Simulated assay, not measured.
Amino acid sequence: MSLAGLFPIDKWNFKSQSILNNLPEDEYGYLCANMLEQKYNKGEVIFREGAVASGIFFIKKGKVKKYQVDQTGREQIIYVANTGELIGYHAILADERYPDSAATLEECVIAFIPKEDFLSAIEKSTVLPRRLLKTLSHEFAVLINSISVVAQRSVKERLAITLIVLREKFKEGTAAGEEIMINVSRNDLANMVGTGDENIARFLTEFKLAGILRTQGRKICITDVKKLIEISGYGTSE
């Protein structure tokens, strides 16, 4: 089921997939001259907050969580990056250390592009700088929207929004006709919503009893996305 006209999914997804699409061959060559591809197991850290930014990462397969850790050691998941997205480039562009951490949510294949190659490609490219500026502008709007939601929406509404967004993330790796299964731990889900595990368990049970979703172990299948959109507080006017 498409969310078009029902839920403003663009307010929740970055658009870094478009950065490398159809770049001129020579410009793509500069970018990938020394690219190294690596397989990651589920739960592996790709880079940590505060580390020196040595390059950017292109997710060729899988999903990655971007997060920060508070003083109590609790994660606050900022974003889930999907296949085709770039991560780590904000730090390179700002000439700063990584502002957050990144770790795999499942088995991934990720390509590392050294800082020098990325900056060289930007200098030589006529397309890349414009795409980066457009993407960064959109990401700023997405983050402002996320901050607003945390401040203004209830935990139940935030969980509904998170499940809708995750459904779209996992839809991309699902074959036509197959059920979309959201495969994240309850702890990660709680860290995305910004609440405790007990609240997640309580509301998931409530949603199950209402026929909105079903679970299979830790996997979640949304069976009535329209009801979930109603709970989220979003309508066609937003």
Rank of each mutant, 00 (worst) to 15 (best):
T215N: 12
S54L: 11
N34M: 11
R153M: 07
E168G: 11
L105A: 09
I180T: 12
L23P: 09
Y89N: 07
R167Q: 10
R218K: 14
T174E: 10
P129K: 05
L189T: 03
T236E: 15
T104Y: 01
S146H: 11
Y98D: 01
D100V: 04
R202G: 12
G233N: 04
A190T: 04
A33V: 00
I46T: 06
T174P: 05
T162K: 02
P8D: 13
K42D: 14
K134R: 14
I212F: 05
A190L: 06
D188G: 02
R153L: 07
K115P: 00
N199A: 13
K226R: 09
K227I: 05
Q68R: 10
A33M: 00
Y89E: 15
F203M: 11
K169P: 15
G5I: 05
N34D: 15
S101V: 03
Q152I: 00
F7D: 00
K219R: 13
K11S: 12
S148A: 02
F57P: 02
A91H: 04
L36I: 06
L143C: 08
D117R: 10
I212T: 05
T135K: 05
T223I: 07
K63L: 11
Y40V: 01
Y67I: 01
D188V: 07
I46L: 08
P129L: 03
F207E: 06
N199L: 07
K15Y: 08
D70F: 02
F112A: 07
F207N: 04
F47R: 04
Y40P: 05
N191S: 12
N187Y: 09
G211C: 10
G50D: 06
A33I: 00
A190C: 08
